[in-house]
Simulated scan of single mutants.
Amino acid sequence: MDLYELDEKKYLYLLLVIPVLVLVYLYIQFWKRKKQREFGDLDLVKKLSPEKSNFKPALKFTIMLLALASLILGLVNPKIGTKTETVKREGIDIVFAVDVSKSMLAEDVAPSRLEKSKQIVSQIVNNLGSDRIGIVAYAGSAFPVLPITSDYGVAKMFLQSMNTDMVSSLGTSLDEAIKLSETYFDKKGKTNKLLIMISDGEDHGEGAEEAAEEANKFGLKIITIGVGTEKGGPIPLKKNGIVESFKRDQEGEVVITKLNQQSLKDIAKATKGGYVYGSSTKEVVEYVKKALDNIEKTEFESTQMADYQSQFQWFLGFGFVLLFIDIFLLERKTKWISKLNLFNEKES
């Protein structure tokens, strides 16, 4: 049985253009008929242009719509796989816990702490081999974004969709992130486990070190990455991408959020992990890469699709053929078809 997936699903929204074009076409035809009636008798108007076909304009429009649909499907790039197979890989299980609290909107690092965090995670994933990954979002509470998977493409898609509205609780609770991340791992499994936490270190909860010590008991190592500056910055409140104001405290003063490196260092130390400052994405990736080289890889099974092939070329080719036909298809009557009178265009 053939299996398939759509490589670039976002382009499917372009198909919404087709019903809009149909409505525009129908309106134009209605408008033309109305104007022709105002000009004079319809039969007389037809006699003034005896070679004009009533059928071909609709045919040309239909061909154009089919060509457009084919080109859009070509952009979507459907892929077909003929079977699935189980392969053996060597790696470790990694969970990325990304801070999505409001303080991560601060722009003391460009473009913002949250966007910088996404860049760091994305680059780390790009440099992984056969490891399995999962994603957790956290603020005042933690939220499971993606379970452990070997599909890096899906992981990046979920990563980019993360925002500060995902978790409603205010503040940052690092211990909640650690506790939820623990549930991602098989405690009885032999696969080595790593939690990579990305945060500005502002912890409004309690017990992060204790949670880290508990995680260390079943072999979970934690690497923390600090994003932000010790000088700090305000938290912008935006509407449609435009800064309208900044977050203020109860006294009306602008809140300045600062990087707290010490809390992140303490968490990493509790699991004999490590801390790295996230100002340079390249340095962070190198640090994580060296840490992974020192962690023993474990063999595990992973299911993946085999014989997976892109099919975009067929849709693009069909679309261009239809456009070529549309160019040379004239709106005049075709003589030999006209003699057959298939569409009752001749008078009785």
Score class of each variant (00 low, 15 high):
Gly129Gln: 12
Gly140Cys: 02
Gly319Asp: 11
Leu323Trp: 09
Met305Ala: 14
Ile94Pro: 03
Ile63Ser: 10
Thr281Met: 13
Phe300Met: 06
Asp7Leu: 12
Gln311Glu: 09
Met305Ser: 14
Val76Tyr: 01
Ile94Leu: 08
Leu170His: 13
Gly74Ala: 12
Lys289His: 14
Ile72Asn: 13
Ser263Pro: 03
Phe246Val: 06
Leu59Phe: 05
Gly319Lys: 15
Thr183Pro: 00
Met64Phe: 09
Lys265Val: 12
Gln262Ile: 10
Gly278Ser: 01
Glu209Val: 14
Val276Lys: 02
Glu5Lys: 12
Lys193Ala: 04
Asn163Met: 07
Lys116Arg: 10
Thr172Leu: 13
Ser169Thr: 14
Gly228Leu: 05
Gln160Met: 14
Asp165Trp: 03
Ser150Pro: 05
Ser168Ile: 10
Asp307Lys: 09
Tyr152Ile: 09
Glu206Thr: 11
Arg33Ile: 10
Asp165Lys: 15
Lys116Val: 02
Ile18Asn: 01
Thr62Tyr: 02
Phe320Thr: 05
Lys239Pro: 01
Val145Asn: 09
Asn341Glu: 00
Gln250Arg: 15
Glu244Tyr: 03
Val87Glu: 15
Gly226Met: 04
Val76Trp: 02
Gly207Leu: 00
Val121His: 03
Leu329Tyr: 08
Leu12Met: 15
Glu51Tyr: 05
Leu195Gln: 02
Glu5Ile: 11
Ala291Phe: 11
Met157Phe: 08
Thr257Tyr: 04
Thr224Arg: 04
Gly129His: 15
Glu115Asn: 07
Ile124Met: 11
Lys102Thr: 10
Trp31His: 15
Leu194Thr: 04
Glu209Asp: 05
Asp131Phe: 03
Lys187Thr: 09
Leu59Val: 13
Lys118Thr: 08
Lys35Gln: 08
Leu220Tyr: 07
Lys60Cys: 04
Met1Tyr: 07
Glu251Trp: 15
Glu107Pro: 11
Phe328Leu: 10
Gly273Trp: 08
Lys221Phe: 05
Asn54Asp: 11
Ser70Asn: 10
Lys34Gln: 14
Lys179Arg: 09
Ser181Gln: 01
Ala208Val: 00
Arg33Lys: 10
Ser141Gln: 06
Tyr11Leu: 08
Lys193Phe: 09
Lys34Leu: 12
Gly241Thr: 04
His204Gln: 06
Asn127Phe: 10
Ala69Arg: 08
Leu26His: 10
Ala208Tyr: 01
Pro50Cys: 00
Lys269His: 06
Ala208Phe: 03
Arg89Thr: 07
Glu90Tyr: 12
Val136Gly: 09
Ser173Arg: 15
Ala268Gln: 03
Leu65Glu: 05
Thr62Arg: 01
Lys297Glu: 15
Ala215Gln: 01
Ser310Trp: 01
Lys269Glu: 12
Ala211Lys: 06
Val285Thr: 05
Val276Tyr: 01
Asp293Pro: 04
Ile242Tyr: 04
Lys35Leu: 11
Thr84Tyr: 09
Leu68Cys: 14
Glu251Thr: 13
Thr271His: 09
Ile196Asp: 08
